[in-house]
């Protein structure tokens, strides 16, 4: 039932695991930045889809990877901008606006992508790094991946540094923890929040492009299959920290990879539907565990001003 423990299949498992985590990781990083600035964006699922379709369509039309990724990031950021206008300028309920964005992403991509279903398009393949990719086990897992997967692996430490060690990160954290105090200190709260929201949208868009250009190349309605929601759960599990999100994302990827191998081997001891539902159920379990441990350690709660509308006085 378990794959035989030879190095080759272990390497393959590792490669699939890291690859499978990419979209969730990118979306989760984006959400972390947005939420650390105080904006809750439940529209990840919609932005993943927008990015996936935009990336696929532009890739198919131009064949240019840079244009495809740019379009995907732009589409995600545009969706996030809509959310930003509603919650930051109009003071709309953030949960509802995020749900509307998710719905809009699903509906709009369903309508606009109707002629692209099953069409051939650009594929961004794995790019093995010279020498490093040949290291046993870890080589294929970490150094023989598509470009966006490398980005996902590098962004964790990068965002950890940026949020915790730079002035830019200080401004973001101040806006998320106490918007009015930040404003009183001269921080342009709304601008920072718009920026972080759109940055988060761009990352989610790239995550979507990974799905339609590298993971399962091609366009399919609803191809994100809830990964946006899993990414939001990952943010909670990671206690709003990029490095913990990296581990959480890789764990999710491992689950997905195990599901593939078991499914391929026709494992009989677990019904197929339970296997397919496992990512959602385990995410729920992980959420509950994270909440228990957070309650025990009384730390790492959400940013204090998360989801609160801020309007400068006067």
């Amino acid at each position: 039932m378990l794959p035989s423990p030879d190095w080759e299949s272990l390497a393959l498992l590792g490669q699939i695991a890291v690859k499978s985590s990419t979209a969730v990781l990118l979306a989760a990083y984006g959400e972390i930045v947005a939420e650390r600035s105080g904006v809750l964006n439940l529209g990840l699922e919609g932005m993943l889809l927008l990015g996936a379709l935009a990336g696929f369509a532009v890739g198919a039309a131009t064949g240019d990877p840079a244009a495809a990724l740019g379009a995907a990031a732009g589409a995600g950021a545009l969706g996030a901008l809509a959310h930003g206008i509603f919650v930051l300028s109009l003071g709309a309920e953030q949960v509802l606006s995020g749900l509307a964005l998710s719905l809009l992403g699903a509906g709009l991509t369903g309508v606009l992508g109707r002629d692209l279903l099953g069409a051939p398009g650009l594929v961004l393949p794995s790019v093995p790094l010279p020498v490093l990719a040949d290291v046993p086990v870890l080589g294929p897992a970490l150094c023989n991946q598509p470009v966006l997967t490398y980005l996902a692996l590098l962004l964790g430490p990068l965002l950890w540094w940026a949020l915790g060690r730079t002035r830019w990160g200080l401004l973001v954290r101040a806006c998320g923890e106490n918007a009015s105090a930040a404003y009183a200190s001269g921080v342009p709260v709304r601008l920072v929040r718009y920026g972080c929201t759109c940055f988060g949208g761009a990352l989610a868009g790239l995550g979507g492009a990974f799905l339609s250009l590298s993971y399962t190349p091609g366009w399919k309605e609803g191809l994100s299959a809830g990964q946006g929601w899993i990414a939001i759960a990952m943010v909670v599990f990671a206690a709003w920290r990029p490095l913990r999100a990296l581990w959480g994302g890789l764990f999710f990827g491992l689950l997905t990879a195990l599901q593939f191998t078991w499914q391929a081997e026709g494992a009989q001891w677990l019904p197929l539907w339970v296997l397919r539902a496992a990512p959602y159920l385990l995410t729920l379990l992980v959420l509950a565990l994270a909440q228990t441990s957070a309650a025990l350690r009384r730390r790492s709660g959400p940013p204090a001003d998360l989801g609160r509308f801020f309007r400068p006085g006067g």
Binding site: L104, A106, G107
Partner: peptide
């Protein structure tokens, strides 16, 4: 496609948010 209905629902939700404002 049927997704058009989803897009219209999303439009209504955004509309409701603007209406609230």
């Amino acid at each position: 496609p049927g997704a058009a209905a989803l897009a219209l629902e999303a439009a209504l939700l955004f509309g409701a948010l603007l209406g609230e404002f």
